[in-house]
């Protein structure tokens, strides 16, 4: 199997697409881009490539070690020609996307993971350059653990990496305001610009929603789907970024601000609460002085007279006490 990284080949396409969207922005929506924001977002992308090259070896070593304990060989001779089993590719892609849903959900609901993933959300803009705003510190979370079940099932780590690469490439084009809605059948199954705008929005209605990578069906299955509502459909003007906007274009601050905040909180917290500042949802505080996304949404619902959040209520019924399933974050 050749050493193949689909994202590397896609980089020129990314550059051309950003260029095309800038031209669209010039004619149709000049506020969609901001040069400093674009510079920060693209620098994030470059930095994440370097960080991946430097720190990615640990996850790879863990996958290769775990692969020795796989349950199934999909190909003869000890899975030697694993890449030749055609049906394993689509199956791996779908299961990897399911894995992505959960790792992404954890990325929003566990502050340790959020400290890394917040990088992707810290722009107040939503354009193709935002897609490249990738974290530098993903290796310092345990996100790779979510892929271990696939390895143990027998999917070769290289196959998972390649499927993950195509997953990331798919997600690039949905970071745009240039496309309104796709055909109804496509919106029903696939993640789209409309669905992903919801995910990046900070309006209370949209917090903690639409974690999907490629297939939006995961959100529909696991109760986290929220459709985009245009202003003329009773919705609000979309606002992007994080609840507490950075207000700074300092790249290093943007990369590390949540790590600094989290470590500071752990340092200052009473002993019995220290672990909660690592594992509970962003916005949680032991003295109730901050707001999680659930609190923000509940306050908004009360204000506008909406009924209680059905997603949160259902989750609380299902698994009281599980912070991943029950609590939201200030994304």
């Amino acid at each position: 199997m050749p050493d193949f990284s689909p994202t590397q080949y896609a980089v020129p396409l990314f550059v051309l697409a950003v260029l095309a969207e800038m031209i669209w922005s010039y004619f149709r929506s000049p506020a969609a881009y901001e040069p400093k924001d674009t510079l920060v977002s693209l620098s994030f992308g470059l930095g994440s490539t370097v960080a991946g090259a430097v720190f990615g070896g640990f996850a790879l070593a863990a996958f290769i070690a775990a692969y020795e304990y796989r349950l199934f060989d999909f190909a003869p001779n000890g899975n030697e020609e694993w890449w030749a089993i055609w049906w394993a590719w689509p199956l791996c892609f779908v299961l990897d996307d399911l894995k992505y849903y959960w790792v992404h959900r954890a990325g929003h609901r566990i502050r340790w993971f959020w400290a890394s993933h917040v990088n992707h959300h810290s722009s107040q803009h939503y354009n193709l350059s935002t897609a490249l705003r990738q974290s530098w510190t993903g290796a310092f979370t345990l996100g790779f653990v979510f892929a271990l079940p696939l390895v143990l099932l027998g999917f070769h780590p290289a196959m998972i990496a390649i499927c993950g690469g195509f997953n990331l490439i798919y997600q690039f084009w949905i970071h745009t305001e240039a496309i309104d809605r796709m055909p109804r059948w496509f919106e029903a199954v696939m993640n789209t610009p409309s669905h992903h705008r919801v995910h990046h929005a900070t309006n209370p209605r949209y917090l903690d929603r639409n974690y999907a990578g490629v297939f939006i069906v995961w959100d529909k299955i696991f109760g986290t789907f929220e459709p985009e509502r245009a202003v003329d459909e009773g919705g609000e003007r979309m606002r992007y970024g994080i609840v507490r906007q950075l207000g700074s274009f300092n790249l290093l601050y943007a990369v590390f601000h949540e790590w600094i905040g989290m470590i500071g909180d752990i340092w200052r917290a009473p002993w019995r609460h220290k672990l909660s500042y690592l594992l509970r949802e962003p916005g949680w505080s032991h003295d109730g002085s901050r707001e999680t996304s659930d609190m923000i949404r509940a306050r908004w619902r009360e204000r506008v007279g909406a009924s209680p959040d059905p997603v949160v209520a259902a989750a609380q019924d299902r698994s009281a006490g599980n912070p991943i399933a029950t609590q939201g974050e200030a994304a």
């Binding site: 800038m22 010039y26 881009y33 040069p35 400093k36 693209l42």
Partner: peptide, 10 residues
């Protein structure tokens, strides 16, 4: 790309 965004007045 950042320079272009600035040059065309975005």
């Amino acid at each position: 790309l950042s320079g272009l965004a600035m040059a065309i007045g975005l």
